[in-house]
Design a binder for these strands. Structure first.
Lengths: 241, 241
DNA sequence: CCAAAAGTGTTATATTTACACCCATGC
DNA sequence: GCATGGGTGTAAATATAACACTTTTGG
């Protein structure tokens, strides 16, 4: 047995070059938010025995890229976006998780502004579809498990950092933002306390614009002040809701 | 190019079986706490060009184990402990990170009660050594980087969960615990507020024992109440210090 | 004028911070 | 008896939580 003794360079070389290799993939849980629902971008799986299931978007990690780069590549190819929120979550390495052999996968989660034009087209292309998180009962491989791990991480980060903006249009109302938190965290929030809290963080920029074509008093629109945020992030701040 | 189009099963099979494979390893940042200092267990590296550097403890992931199992195997082999705190941190996959070829590594961090007898022996065996975190200037491979990522994660978790106990003897005084937080988080804490906070969490069990052989008034000893903790963890609790 | 969401302050409660002295023990 | 850390409480400041009504718009 190798371990327990000092590592030997020849042992390593042997192992690296022979059977101690595995295929490594990335799988992206791409979250979008639309119609007061949290959604995930999924694709039809064409691999037995999962031909009739949906699966996460992923690919093998190429020899010339890091896993982060691979995840970003998958995202860019599938959504067209280059500048999106993307975060590494966890490794999934059960020996039997993939039917074709040992494939170790790194899970990532990503936040997308779903309402952009071409993203709707993607949804209509038939290759991929947006599915409500609540309505997903099962997925191919261990992807259902991966999805839930990423969802838990999203919830945690949402409480710690103001990342919710990444799921909304550039301009949004405070109620939209509140609903987003309520839907994802599955809590109910007080309108006045929520607004006070957010304004006190100083990362919202009030715009001179208001909602249009709503059949009630239009709400003021806000945008996310990236510059202030970056400054604050370094100091570190909590975001307890 | 594969990605962008629907995944094809034959492409996958080809890639998995040929050049799209990588060696996968685990590297453990094993933290211990002794003499008011945070330490890490390191080993001498015997691989060029790092022959004169220290490195983290790690090994290749075997074909019949998950990465979590591999990390635990490394820990058990090196420290003898089976029931230790062990947490996956992050993947490191720079293409040139390993001199022998592509090796993707999964970083873990672990918390050890350093004061157990056989652990001191380990430290004296010459194969491994405990080194103060503050005194580490560089490590082999990208291990210095890995170490700092794990240290950051430790600091974060220490603020969110009462994991500090894992670094202390089973029985400890409140001052010991406070010093541990101060050393790791690099803050100064108020003795009374710290005690109030901890007692209010209800995860400390007051023992009928006191310190011995100290040249001042001996402190009451406490132990960590795992059962209460497990119950509370499910509900989720913050631990802001 | 009705429906729907926008917008706005105050009070009570809980949490956090700051702070100083006497106590028990070993030498 | 002196050095060392052990142990304790209170008051002020801050943060959080609960709560209801008027306003603006479209139809």
């Amino acid at each position: 047995m190798v371990s327990g003794s000092v590592q030997n360079i020849n042992t390593w070389l042997n192992q690296i070059q022979t059977d101690f290799k595995a295929a490594v993939s990335v799988d992206c849980v791409i979250f979008g938010y639309d119609n007061d629902a949290l959604k995930i971008l999924l694709s039809r799986c064409d691999m037995p025995p999962y031909e009739h299931d949906l699966s996460l978007l992923g690919d093998l990690v190429h020899p010339d890229e890091t896993t982060d780069e691979a995840a970003r590549r998958v995202l860019v190819n599938k959504t067209g976006f280059t500048d999106v929120f993307l975060e590494q979550v966890q490794v999934f390495s059960d020996i039997k998780r993939h039917p074709l052999g040992r494939v170790i996968t790194i899970a990532y989660y990503s936040l997308i502004k779903i309402d952009e034009d071409h993203l709707e087209h993607i949804g209509k292309s038939g290759l991929w579809e947006w599915k409500n998180v609540n309505e997903i009962q099962s997925l191919a491989f261990d992807h259902y498990n991966i999805m839930h791990t990423c969802l838990d991480k999203l919830k945690k980060q949402l409480r710690e950092q103001p990342i919710g903006f990444n799921l909304l249009p550039v301009k949004f109302s405070l109620l939209q933002l509140q609903r987003l938190y309520e839907v994802i965290l599955q809590v109910q929030l007080d309108k006045r306390n929520f607004r006070r809290k957010l304004k006190s963080l100083g990362i919202l920029k009030e715009l001179d614009e208001i909602e249009t074509s709503v059949s009630h008093r239009p709400a003021r629109l806000y945008t996310f002040d990236t510059k202030v945020y970056e400054k604050k992030k370094i100091a570190g701040f909590a975001f307890d809701l």
